[in-house]
Design a protein around this nucleic acid. Sequence first.
RNA 1: GGCGCCAUCGUCAAGUGGUUAAGACACCGCCCUUUCACGGCGGGUUCAUGGGUUCGAAUCCCAUUGGCGUCACCA
Length: 486
Amino acid sequence: MTDQNIRTRFAPSPTGYMHIGNLRTALYAYLYAKAQHGTFILRIEDTDRTRYVADAVDFINRTLKLAEIVPDESPDLGGPYAPYVQSERMDIYKKYAEKLVELGHAYYCFCDPDEDHSQGKFGGYDRTCRDLPQDVIDAHLKNGDPYVIRQKMPLTGETTYFDVLHGNISIPNEELEDQVLLKRDGMPTYNFANVIDDHLMHVTHIIRGSEFITSTPKHVLLYQGYGWELPTFIHLAPVMGKNADGSTSKLSKRHGATSFDDLVKAGYLPQAIVNYVALLGWNPKDTNQEIFSMQELIEHFSLEGLSKSPAVFDYDKLGWVNGEYLKAMDAAEFADKARTFAGDLPDYLEAHWTELAALLQTRISRMGEIPEQIQFLINCPDFDADLYVNKRNKVTPEKAKDLLPAVIELLENIPESEWQNDNLYAKLEAHIEATGVKKGLMMWVVRIAAAGQKVTPGGATEIMTLLGKENSLARLKKSLAKLAEL
RNA sequence: GGCGCCAUCGUCAAGUGGUUAAGACACCGCCCUUUCACGGCGGGUUCAUGGGUUCGAAUCCCAUUGGCGUCACCA
């Protein structure tokens, strides 16, 4: 029922940034391996010295850990095919590159990359080095001249491979250039190291982005050149972002927070991000469920559920998923976590934080909204009398002016020690009954006068509870004074 | 531009020749309500276009259009 030998890998280059598209690729590779009781490998592809970023490997480790994507083999963990960092495997690539030359599928090229060459089809180089006599090659090598090793592509015919999502894909061989395998600095290129490592590490399923669809024939030719068995290819559709004009393009920084890190900082829970991202381009075949724990994702995951068309990243839906996680959180846990996003608070709010957090818990879709949500409790907004207008409850500024004095008097008689929500509510309710005013009208007036803002987390009495007696009355009086000017 | 991939509501999507074309987000309306939110109920000309194949097409084929990718000593 399960194949113990399934092995997938995530092979990022260390850029210090975990794009949401890469995270999704890692997730799917992980989910597939785990769903099949297989092995998930983390391999670092750091063959570009010019793009190396310090601490980037730590960053990747931390990110994967936060996302609960845990490798079975990695640079830190080691494993049967260590090392798992490409820059530590240079001798391996050199050996295999030379072997491919021997096999007749690659050749030495001594062209200078900075020099202009006769323009062949492929721009900066031509294929003349293919035909270099052996004695010329030997002389260059003996002389210690710099060189690269290029793959020798077939000039005719086409190369076909099978992709789980797309079926057979064929590319005419004449479209394939004699790509560099081993660079001048001795480092392998992605297209080479990737194939060597995937084979050596016994990767069975290559799950990666669709940008590699066109270069896969080159990889296939490499496997065939060595006489190696082909892995199974799965090319994922890209994650898109929505542009201001409504069009879409591959998700990038201009679409806002698009790295896992950015999203966490914006107040989305790691599990919620993973949950949402899992659904971007995949959906379970056996359920309409939308909220999944990592364990549930593993249980439901199958390659058949992968989508081959691009998916647009939707912050609204992410917000909904995150909101579901937020609401499901233990109240105390939410309060703690939310507190770290709230910033500096005045004493009265600090004292009422548990209540405030409870009000926020069902109202926000991400923690980053908290400061703006509670700002009105710290500084009363300077508001206009129009704010009192509410059609449904038939509220007008005039009515507010009529009702407020009695409320203020009532509240002034409530001792500080009895200034709690239930009591305030009870007192106001009694007052409402005594005066015969509609509850909605009265509460609206009080809430606006105290909050100075149309939409608030919590109703009139809840806000006054948070503000405290002194503060509430000060606000009410000030509001009344403003109304008196009318 | 060559080559390649893709195409179901605004978005994520189910669907694999015969369905009233699911579900979710968003949106709109109603209910609930001390505002908002939560929750409940309800709503919407969705199969890019044009040709085929077929008794029958969102499903198969071709073309067109559009989107995306790729064409580095980056990955």
